[in-house]
Amino acid sequence: MYNLNKFFIPLAVFLLVTFSSFAIAEKIGHYGVGKTASEQQIKGWDIDIRPDGKGLPKGQGSVTQGEPLYEAKCASCHGSFGEGQGRWPILAGGEDSLTEERPEKTVGSFWPYASTLWDYINRAMPYTAPKSLTPDEVYAISAYVLYLNEIVEDDFVLTDSNLASVKMPNEENFYIDDRPDSTNTRCMKNCKNPADIEVVQPLAGITPEQEKAPVKEKAKSTSSLSELAIQGKATYQSSCFVCHSSGVAGAPKVSDKDDWNKRIEKGFDQVVTHAIDGYSGNTGIMPPKGGNLSLSDEQVTNAVHYMLEAK
């Protein structure tokens, strides 16, 4: 009995301490989870730019430097003059169109701040290889897009210190959400004259069919592929798929073997050279390595093997 009591006393003290510390945790609402983010860690991820220039890294790029970069990395989707290919975004033009029946909301006609352009190119472009550009390349391409919109002259150099002073034509035309803007009432009877009702019928033939599940792309059998083509498949899917599955910018579609055969007549090496170094001509635009310069020549070559062999 004596021994048992001796055991109980420390246990009781222990429980008391434990419970009181629970209580403290609940009271202060502070949990102490996570680790302090170091300056270096923050620097690696903190990529955002504001209209006042906050966040811009040191650097610069000229319109002249931007032109070849834009041609190589942007024009295949956005067009050489920012006019847009297919349904890819139009970047230039559209001045004074915002009140028209079909407004064109481009960088020049609509975007309120130049910082947005820099920020977006830096975080999300080129589409197939986001976050692959150096700061100077982003300055140069941003300068070129501003030039395409006639916001800067052809000798302009965009820098971290002058970006915030680039005035965009449409800046003043944005205002904070002021909804609710409509004032309907809960009328229950005689809310309108039935004779005034005019029924507008839908446009026919543009609704996708729903009757059956969408046709899935047939699982491409890899059994008939060569070793190199199998190795190239992942590269194709990550860096080539966007253009070569849809045929954008004149890209030969993987499924269009006739188109590929025409190109291969000039020799496999020629096709690979165009894939690695880029190509621009009557048949379309191929950015070097599809815009993803982190790919090795070997990876690009294997992706070409894959596109030639895949059915």
Binding site: L98, V107, F110, W111, Y113, T116, Y120, N173, F174, R179
Partner: peptide
């Protein structure tokens, strides 16, 4: 920050050519 998805996109163009944001 006025980033792309709150300026170029996801703003509401009104008949007078001005646009609502946020």
């Amino acid at each position: 920050w006025h980033h792309r998805e709150e300026t170029s996109k996801y703003t509401d163009l009104m008949p007078d050519g001005r646009a609502r944001r946020f």
